[in-house]
Design a protein around this nucleic acid. Structure first.
Lengths: 355, 355
DNA sequence: ATCAATCTGTCAACCGGTTGCCAACTATTG
DNA sequence: CAATAGTTGGCAACCGGTTGACAGATTGAT
């Protein structure tokens, strides 16, 4: 069979004129309140009031101005507005790793809630580095009205310092003095451990996440407490990184530990671990049960599908955004951390131990 | 076994003081060039020049000013700068659906490239609606230096109109007169069809994506051309939506079509389709081979792992950002669309037909 | 030493809104 | 009808940078 290189493309319109690069400024810039004022026969300040201070001008003038604005297709210049007021209609979101699906839902939750209230989302990534994170946060802080930090890696004090400057909300970590949204892992963990105990498991391993992760420690505490209660032995194993790859690498430690049930810091680790164990001929869940964390996209694609403690990540993002926007409206932040519920989603990767 | 509600939480610092809501303006606002000017004993405009027009002031003054800026921990006020210049150091990205993993990599690519060149990424979602998309684009356009549209759903003309205002780059669609980055699907498709043909398949079905999707049509054309060449019969099936669920729903049509090989518009459809077929007792790939598109996160989690035509999505995002930033620097856009290569990733969901 | 050419810093206007203050106007009341 | 209170719109200053025009200082050439 002759090779076919797929050359069906219509001639890639080469030779066509290139596009104009950049437009000069004055070209036909958008209308300003001065244009409206002229058209409506009033003072610019009146226009400004009509458009931003409802009730400050008479209904009649209001109407005239609105019509004029409509006619000119007016749009406020956000920068001109931001300069004197400091308000930018923008919230910032910093995540540790954009490619980590855990954050996808958080991003979405924040974006959706924000844009519903006419705020735009500005996104930055810290690449899991506390330093990068701090730099990004500082840079953002001057341009946004408020900041959401998802699973921040920097020190509590640094975060408090940021929060002293502008409203800040934190997801997946509790910091005294800063509004936080955290999944309350205890319910989900206790359900998971109970289910494992009921299925005959006695030895459990927890695969930890990054050492800087507050949430990883929190989960370990939860696991320990639940294991105490249900009389399971619990051991903690370290992972190199909280990814599929990290999960693969930790498989040998899991086997060495003798545990028959594993709870991992996140789903990525669980998936990697499961892949590696299966590759080694171990049957999941007959020989080892695996429970992940978060219920990320794709957790149900695996075979068997992953049992996991679901964190309502989208809700976290959305709640954090709401918190922030409310604070911008002058409300006080919540006294303690906002807790959202977690729950166990039982799928195929956990079950009765078949010795 | 008694129920355990996981109440191990340290007392949720209730009763603690609530957080101050919003800070007044004057409180201790950041230093300005006027502060620097005073400290350095020069005119503010000199400070401005020292900080943004390299070479315009003497080395000596430059040093003095830089030291003063350092000492005061000066940061430019982006809004004040944006007002007269119109430049915001910001690029916008609009995606059709934030939860669709296809876009994760695009977002990442754009963010990484942007932030490497000191641009901040502003994100918005169109929720697959041409109208929402246009509104978001319009709103963004006034606040960003350039705009990236990933898989836009609106008309060519609307996009050209936007592009006439500010630099715009498009991903996953070709529009004459607008810089575009598109995966060149032909290579990947021809590899896929060749592989299927070599495995004995003669009847192929293409499961299409959203009707507004330029890329879906493009892929269908590619599939047709390749099937022509390799002498396969190709039929096109419609999906309700380009998601896992949509894939499930299209399963009955796939069966009815009699095709033994399926190429879907994207991986999500492929995954859903595979799940539904397997649930119906069909063996993949022995009875039906499935090939997806994009190689999204999680495509290799399935059993069997998904064979797919990989689009370098991250690269698309990154390339589009580069294009945009170059245009902002005054370069012309590319003459034709920028093509990036696709390639077949053979995994377990495709193979020899076992009749 | 003289004069032109080049550097360097200052002045002031401007970007496009917002807002405190005030005056004019309207409505209410005695 | 006058006095008072409440509205409404205008003036002008301001937010924090940028930039064209210009003058004084330097430099170099003649």
């Amino acid at each position: 069979m002759p090779d076919y290189d797929g050359a069906v493309t219509e001639a890639t319109n080469s030779g066509a004129a290139t596009f104009p690069a950049k437009r000069g400024r004055g070209e036909r810039s958008s209308p300003t309140i001065y244009d409206i004022a002229k058209l409506a026969g009033v003072n610019p300040s009146t226009v400004s009031r009509a458009l931003s201070k409802p009730g400050r001008v008479s209904a009649k003038t209001q109407k005239i101005i609105e019509d004029a604005a409509e006619q000119l297709n007016y749009q406020v210049n956000p920068f001109a507005r931001a300069l004197p007021t400091g308000r930018t209609q923008t919230i910032g979101l910093i995540v540790a790793d954009i490619t980590n699906p855990t954050f996808f839902d958080i991003i979405r939750g924040a974006e959706t809630t924000g844009s519903a209230r006419d705020y735009t989302l500005v996104l930055a990534e810290s690449a899991e580095s506390p330093e990068t994170e701090l730099i990004a946060a500082r840079r953002m802080l001057s341009t946004v009205d408020g900041l959401i930090l998802a699973s921040p890696r920097m020190d509590d004090d640094k975060i408090r310092a940021l929060a002293a400057d502008k409203p800040v909300a934190v997801i997946n970590r509790e910091i005294e003095g800063v509004p936080c949204v955290v999944p309350d892992v205890n319910k989900g963990i206790s359900q998971a451990v109970r289910s494992l105990a009921a299925n005959g498991h006695q030895q459990l391993a927890y695969v930890a996440g990054p050492p800087q992760s507050w949430m990883s420690r929190r989960r370990w505490e939860g696991v320990q407490a639940a294991c105490d209660w249900y009389k399971l032995a619990a051991v903690r194993l370290e992972s190199s990184k909280p990814t599929v790859d990290g999960g693969r690498q930790v498989a040998r430690d899991v086997l060495a530990s003798g545990a028959t049930a594993v709870i991992t810091y996140n789903d990525l680790l669980a998936i990697g671990l499961m892949q590696e164990l299966q590759a080694a001929g171990i049957h999941v869940p007959d020989q080892i049960s695996i429970v992940g964390f978060d219920d990320i996209f794709g957790a149900d694609f695996t075979t068997p599908p992953l049992t996991t403690v679901r964190s309502p990540l989208g809700e976290c993002g959305s709640r954090a955004a709401t918190l922030l926007l409310d604070m911008l409206l002058g409300h006080d932040g919540p006294a303690g951390a906002v807790r959202v519920d977690t729950e166990l989603v039982v799928r195929g990767s956990s079950g009765r131990l078949i010795a």
